[in-house]
Design a protein around this nucleic acid. Structure first.
Lengths: 128, 128
DNA sequence: GTTGACTTTTACGTAAACGTAAACTAAAAT
DNA sequence: ATTTTAGTTTACGTTTACGTAAAAGTCAAC
């Protein structure tokens, strides 16, 4: 298998190494170590990092992202655990759905405003 | 016309008065004042506040939201101004569109994971 | 085998977005 | 008329999410 160093990942995602170490401090990512203590990241670690950054773009806090990651990550075997996980997941899914609807409304409003501006510009050009 | 007090707005949106004053500090909202210096908010101010909070939910910084507000707010009359505004608006619209697509992908992934969990639960219940 | 790039931990610094407390004034209620 | 209640400014405090610098160890290249 193949590993990434911290600076490789940092470059790939255009973030600092400090940022990656900070995510580790907060328990969001857990790379293995070489004998001498250097961090090594697997493809899976990379995927987690990608997930973190996407969550951030959506305005989720690291705390929320942490919750979501443990949702996907932990193999919850017990029935109660599964039910809890599903309930939590359904709630998060609902939140995401609401956000999408909200954003689509914003999009429509922006399009309307833009249409208005374009019309104004047309009139100005007509006069000229 | 009808005005809102700061605490009325705070209650309506479930935020603190400090938060509203902070948005004013940052130039995002500009209520009128009574003779004695108390803030009064119009329907339009309320709409702006709503916009701010929506922007925040989407993960935009107050700085970005400030920009967007002045975009919608200022009556830009000159041709150059109009063109600039339209260009900026189109860019923001693109960002929003991308975000929607991104979120929809996240939604699908979450749905897949949830389906998997539900299947596991089914199997457990079948055994029981 | 030493220079230079990279990594580690520790620790203090910082910007954004408010929270909170003090000291005071105005409005509303009793 | 005088308590509450709500509002104001000023200013320091706090959390999140890192930035930055120091001191020391390690890896890669020449």
């Amino acid at each position: 298998m193949n590993y990434y160093t911290i600076s490789q990942l940092a470059e790939q995602f255009d973030i600092s190494t400090r940022t990656i170490r900070y995510y580790e401090e907060r328990g969001l990512i857990s790379p293995i170590r070489t004998e001498s203590g250097q961090r090594l990241y697997t493809k899976k670690d990379r995927a987690v990092l990608k997930l973190i950054l996407r969550g951030k773009r959506f305005g989720f806090s690291l705390e929320e992202i942490h919750e979501m990651i443990s949702l996907f990550d932990n193999d919850r075997t017990g029935r109660k655990q599964l039910e809890k996980t599903i309930a939590y997941g359904e709630q998060k899914l609902k939140e995401v759905t609401e956000r999408i609807e909200d954003l689509m409304q914003l999009k429509q409003e922006m399009e309307a405003i833009l249409a208005d501006f374009r019309e104004r510009l047309q009139k100005l050009e007509g006069v000229e």
